[in-house]
Design a protein around this nucleic acid. Structure first.
Lengths: 201, 201
DNA sequence: TCTCTCATGTAAGTCGTTACATGATTTC
DNA sequence: GAAATCATGTAACGACTTACATGAGAGA
């Protein structure tokens, strides 16, 4: 149940229409919570229904007309409670790590190209974050800014991790690929254990 | 569409029943692709329907009886294609970072307890990974093992990131909390910009 | 027999993704 | 006035979550 709270946070930072929210989810908020415009419109309807937000008065509340929302006290209360509550971290899902484990079984054909492609993507994202930090957080700032900078630093560290790990992975895959070729040449077939932490599986 | 491929990988590593798969998803595979037993049974049905896996011959194929599956050639081919294809990384979603950004708007009440709790959880996970590496990957090993160790190292690095970042976050929140108290005492109210990267929002 | 655990499933509902529909405003 | 763009939606489907149902075997 995080999307409604993401929207409440965004609307508290600045009252917006659905499409404006969508654009903000493509940038800052979307860096750690993505959403499409269909999700956003649906949630805006639910939040309005629940009395957490309301549409700002407008002359023509019709289809195709801009419709801005602001947060009501009940919405702020809901967000405050959610932010201060206890929620366990969700188990992560990462398809690339899964594919690497699959490659350990079916072979590494073409894997290095994909790793290089991901490396480039993460390098670009890291550069974007670094630029934002340089531009918006050069000087010591307000309490709000310090917290937002902290969030940005998480993004920078995560992208740095990926860049470093992908470089390591490329080196490893190159060596493994060479070893596989050698093994095939010898007709060798080492079974090997099941997997990390899978001692009894 | 990653879950069926996660199951194919697991079944190639070792033919298993639904519940055995569930247990393995609670440990090794679940470290980067979690799934419940309901998801797994449903996918097993689809994979069998599609001709990617088959149930091993059994005397009593009845409800409540164990039913083991193995991967068919078509299933291996499907997995090989998926593992070597191109798939962009999905935008990450992290509720804790979202809550921190919400806290920047509605206040940090109780946030430090939650950060400490998450820190403990990640420290435990990191210890578990480190133990697995020590136990299962002490010696240089086969190509398969090297790739699986690489995946495990990703887990270790990610947990290390969280532990370090949470420590930083705790320090920052403590300072921000103190500053907020001081601001309230003075009646100050600094507006501050919208958000990282949100220059025009 | 009663209960606990193993093992496989059903059902309902929410969340997320993809494709499409429709009205309003601006620009050539 | 035709086309592009802004803006708000609908519809359908698949993925995921939560709760519950059912049967088989093992032990008290």
């Amino acid at each position: 149940m995080s999307l409604p709270h993401a929207i409440l946070t965004a609307l508290l930072e600045k009252p917006s229409s659905g499409l404006e929210l969508t654009r903000r989810f493509d940038r800052s908020i979307g860096y750690f919570w993505s959403a499409t415009h269909q999700q956003i419109y649906r949630e805006l309807g639910k939040l309005e229904q629940a009395g957490f937000i309301r549409a700002l008065p407008s002359d023509q509340p019709a289809r195709g007309q801009k419709k801005e929302f602001e947060v009501l006290p009940a919405g702020r209360a809901e967000l405050t409670q959610w932010a201060s509550g206890r929620h366990d971290p969700k188990p992560q899902r990462d398809a690339l790590l899964l594919r690497l484990r699959a490659a350990a079984v079916v072979g590494c054909e073409g894997l290095d190209d994909e790793l290089r492609r991901h490396l480039a993507l993460h390098q670009r994202q890291l550069a974007e974050y670094t630029e934002i930090e340089r531009r918006d957080f050069a000087a010591p700032a307000s309490a709000d800014d310090r917290l937002r900078r902290l969030v940005l630093r998480a993004g920078i560290s995560l992208e740095t991790f990926w860049v470093e790990w992908l470089a390591e992975a490329l080196a490893e895959v190159a060596e493994v690929g060479a070893a596989e070729v050698a093994e095939v040449a010898e007709g060798a077939d080492t079974g090997g254990p099941d997997a990390p932490g899978d001692a009894s599986a």
